[in-house]
Design a protein around this nucleic acid. Structure first.
Lengths: 151, 151
DNA sequence: CAAATCGTAACAAGACAAGTAACATGATAC
DNA sequence: GTATCATGTTACTTGTCTTGTTACGATTTG
């Protein structure tokens, strides 16, 4: 578990959900992501709360995509899963007394804020149907290639 | 320990080392950083290997700054400590079979690469004497303020 | 030789996402 | 209406990585 892969996983799932119209159970999704159903429910709860997907209990239940991929940006998904920390680095102390350390925090913090702003802008500029289109392009370019993820 | 604070700490230390010319022991530095001497030696080893500081054993030994702050960029320090991972997020699988997941990895990876490039450019554009100057400015603006970090 | 200091290895602690197990809740099918 | 399927949720474990800590060896000075 080197990284927080929730954003990556949710994008992956949402695009697959768009491909087959019927609902998918947490079990099916878990197999797709090589994880287990509890992790799926846990992570997708945020998407449900934001109205991107719906979940239904009971026989025949499961998860369904509520909004079109063209309405969902990568930033939307990032926010829906709770805006996890983007950076692995950071200051040693958030409110240091030492003036030198304060100056260091400002210098580093400014650079990180800029990088974060750029990243979030990028996430905001891409909708999920764009990624789906990239996938379709690959598929037509190499029709022999196996899909691999459970359909 | 929410973040990797090695970069932040090393910047802090290097600027302090520039302020008083005599060498500083790992113990003194550890107190300054609110940590312990082994952590200091471990992290500063990289700076020594890159020739930014020198360490001397034995009575009267300790750490000394070898190069002027104006010769050291934040990027230099980042590299010297081993270029730790910048991001806390990442793909679920680096080499996925699934074409959808590949498309997701590319979309996310591109955005992250851009953000990383920007951050590294920013680190490369700032030398340590710039931060030291910011500190001096604060000090003259508020002369009554206590320095706080052991001199 | 004694004291100071770094170098290093080995291991424990803390944080946090991810994995897992157990059980309650609700919905459908027969 | 009971059995089954599926989500919701809690609690606990695991894996990974930086930090923290202890211990000990090596080197330099007095």
């Amino acid at each position: 578990m080197r990284n927080d892969s929730r954003l990556s996983r949710m994008l992956h799932v949402l695009i697959h959900m768009d491909k087959h119209q019927h609902s998918a159970t947490s079990d099916m999704i878990a197999k797709m992501l090589n994880t287990n159903p509890v992790v799926v429910r846990r992570t997708m709860a945020g998407l449900r709360e934001q109205g991107y997907v719906r979940s239904e209990k009971g026989h025949g239940g499961g998860w369904t995509l509520v909004r079109p991929l063209s309405d969902i940006t990568l930033l939307d998904v990032y926010r829906a899963i709770g805006e996890p920390h983007l950076f692995a680095i950071g200051p040693a102390d958030d409110q240091p007394q030492c003036l030198v350390e304060q100056a260091v925090n400002i210098a580093l913090g400014d650079a990180m804020k800029e990088a974060q702003a750029l990243l979030l802008r990028r996430l905001d500029s891409v909708t999920l149907d764009k990624i789906a289109a990239d996938f379709e392009a690959k598929l037509t370019a190499h029709p022999a290639t196996s899909y691999s993820c459970a359909s």
